[in-house]
Each structure stands twice: as structure tokens, then as C-alpha cells.
Design a protein around this nucleic acid. Sequence first.
DNA 1: AAAAAGATTAATGAAAAGTTAATGTTATTA
DNA 2: TAATAACATTAACTTTTCATTAATCTTTTT
Lengths: 228, 228
Amino acid sequence: MKMYKLLLVEDDASLGYLLNEYLKMKNFTVIWVKNGNDALKVLEEQQFDLCILDVMMPDMDGFKLAENINQKNISIPFLFLTARSLKIDVLKGFSLGAVDYIRKPIDEEELVVRLNNLLHILAKKNTSQKELYKIGFYTYNPLDFELSFESEKWQLTSRESELLVYLLKNKNHICKHKDILNTIWGKNDYFNRKSLNVFVTRLRKLLKNDPSIKIENIHNQGFKLMSE
Amino acid sequence: MKMYKLLLVEDDASLGYLLNEYLKMKNFTVIWVKNGNDALKVLEEQQFDLCILDVMMPDMDGFKLAENINQKNISIPFLFLTARSLKIDVLKGFSLGAVDYIRKPIDEEELVVRLNNLLHILAKKNTSQKELYKIGFYTYNPLDFELSFESEKWQLTSRESELLVYLLKNKNHICKHKDILNTIWGKNDYFNRKSLNVFVTRLRKLLKNDPSIKIENIHNQGFKLMSE
DNA sequence: AAAAAGATTAATGAAAAGTTAATGTTATTA
DNA sequence: TAATAACATTAACTTTTCATTAATCTTTTT
């Protein structure tokens, strides 16, 4: 898991201390500076993923700092974290190029979630998301419907895929017949149940290369995809 | 300047009306639906840049709707716009993959700024590739529509080119019928689907010199240009 | 041992996709 | 402006795909 590096610009000693400690605890690398000039200096020297700017600071305020960042062509995403909650300030913040404008006070947990979300969006800009499931020696790519085992590859159909994903999401846990049927087939009747059996057989055949993988039936209850 | 297309999911008639009108005035294309089921239907048919979800709606709430979007692999960025302001709701919203969580009431002007900001961040660099695409022993030049294989050359038409480029950009990944149709044809209906088939046939014929290249159909899903 | 549930393989049929040709439609040229 | 050319769309028809249904066999439960 990537560790993100943040620059925190906050003149208030106690809030700065608190945030610094909390963010570090949450697995961020944090550099904390207390004014705009120090911020600019550090930004010249080091690379950051995101910059958190207070607005109200003596000497050079957050807006002025943002202007400087823009002027010096330092390409770093920044956001404002401030008690200035007037609409006009928010608009100004965004017009300066902020990626977000967060009003104080904010719950630390929510802040972390927002930061991670922003960093995730900013990073994802160019890479297509790769959601892969791993089970035993198999890999399943639900976006392309591709199941792979070593160099072999199978193209699954949509029903096969839906069922496999359902089981994978509940790996090692029982999936009740009725839940599978209601979720995937939309209803739970005699015929759909038969159909489900046929698909389980297919998946078993597809997964037989790794003997540690099993789709167990729990009589009258449901199926369980077992592995490890 | 690009005009962004939004899906607004809001059951409240007066707020929905207000937002719809305001956003249209601000140069967005807006489709307004009043419940989750309609939203899912429209999402299958049309392409949007961003989706604005209310949380509290009868029948299927916004969170449930987001789950459905995820499960159906509809790749659309969405945010919540809601009066539910508890931390636990915010965290839930982000955990479902929201790009933002905006608390009501919000000033319309601020909303628009936030939307534009998000869309700006999300906008993938649509670097219209100037270089040649290579696939197998073929090269394709998208500027003058020229496909070459060894000494042979073909002049493609614009539709052929658009489709080929779309497939090339997503080489080895599924391009969903509906996405191709919405992007290239502008809409997804019976006739356009037929037309798409005709073009796929043409491209297959053009690419047949290299047997390692295949345009696969994934039943009910889309096409996949395979190579290597 | 009988009955119910599950597994497996095969058959079926409707919908989707493939192909070729005909028909519109638009832009270009005479 | 009529004729032509280029090309996307629609039509007509064939082939393929795949979820469902059916048939048959095996396991589990009572």
C-alpha cells in the first residue's frame, strides 16, 4: 500500500500538532510547517502528493501561498482546511486551483477519508483501475470476465461471472441458495434453482486445476467457495 | 468548452426542479430522475460525466443505488448530495466509492464550483494520440486514417477510424457495446447496434492479415480487441 | 428403503451476433 | 443543379451463443 506524503501548513500550534500526529498515525508521511515561506522552501526541496493549507496565517495567508505556488509553477495539488466558511472564501479557494475546500472544525476520521479519496482520484487519473480477485492459483478479472490459471485463460459468460463474483465476495462463507438466486436471478423458484446447479457445476470444472479450491454444498442451505 | 452531462437523482420535486434548472442555466446537460430504478435504467442507456445522488429516497436509497452501480460495473463517478450529515453516513458514502459527499443545504453557486472542480480533476487527459498505434504487425495512423500492414495500406472512413481507435485505446479489455455506441454514435438503440456489427465485420476483414489479432465478442457485453 | 436434494451431461430455443447486400444520405464534382 | 461518389445505415438472412430445461445419475436425509 502506497504511503502518501503530505505537506501540512498550519500556524496554530495545537491544531497543527494534533493533525500531524493523527495523520502520521494513519500512515501518512507528514511534513508540518507553520508559515507560507517555510512551505515554499520545502516545496522546492521535496516532492509531495498533497498539500493542506490553512488560510488564516500571519504574514502570508493560505490564499497568498496558493498564488505563490501557482506563480512558481510548482505542480502540487492543494486544498484549504480553514475556519473561513463564507461562500466567497470557498469560491476564492477553488478559483485558486484547490482540489477541495474543507471547513473547520472537521472530524479527523472524516478528514482522513477525504484525503485518501482525493489522493485516490488524483492518482487514478491515468491508470485504469484493476480490480482483481485471487483465489488459490487462479486470478479473476471481473471487468473483462477473464479467469486465469498460470498461462491458461477462460472467457466467462455474464451469468458465470456474476455467480463467481458472488462466491468470491463471500469466500469461505456460506452463500445461501435463496440469497444467490434473489440477487442474481431475481427470484427463487424451482427452475432457477436447477439453473444455479448447472452453473455451479461449470464453475467447479473451471476451477478444478487447483485442488485446494472447492465449492461445497451445504445441504438445504447454500454453497461455500473454499480455499486455503 | 466541454459541456458536461450530469445525472441528477433526487426524489424531492421542488429541490429537484430547482437544481435541474440551475444546473442547466450553468451550462450542464442534466437528466433528472426521481428514483433509483430509473437511474439504473438511464445509466445503461446513456453516458454521463458525473452522477449526483440523493440519499434519502423511498424504495431504493442512494446508498443502495451506489451499491447497484458498483455491482453492475457501471463505471460512473458519483457523489452524494444529502441532508444526512452524520459522520457515519459520510464514511459510508466514501466507502461506497463516492468522489465527494456534500451536505445539504448548499449554496448553488458553491455546488457548481465544486462540480466543475471535480469534473476537472476527473477529466482524463483525452490526449488525442498523435502517434501511431501498433497492433500485431499493423500500424494505424489516426490523423490521416491510414492502416498499414507491411507494404499494404488502407484508407479508413471516419466511423471505421473512430471505432478502431476506441478499441485500440482499450486493447485487451472489454469495450461495452453501450459505451461504444454512446461515445461514437451518441446513442444506444437497436439500429445503431446493428450498424456497430457491420463496422466490426469490416474491421475484422481489414485486420485478418495478422491471425494473432482478434476482435472478440463477449455475449451481451461488448467487444474486445485482442492481440499478443 | 424411500424421498428429497444435488450433480452432471445433454438437448433446446430464443436472442444476439455475423455477414452480405440494398438503400438512404451527404458531400463532391461535372 | 444534376450526376456521381463515398459512406453510413437498414434490411434480409445465416450462424452462434448461452441460459434454461430436461433427463439421468448420485448423495444425503429421514
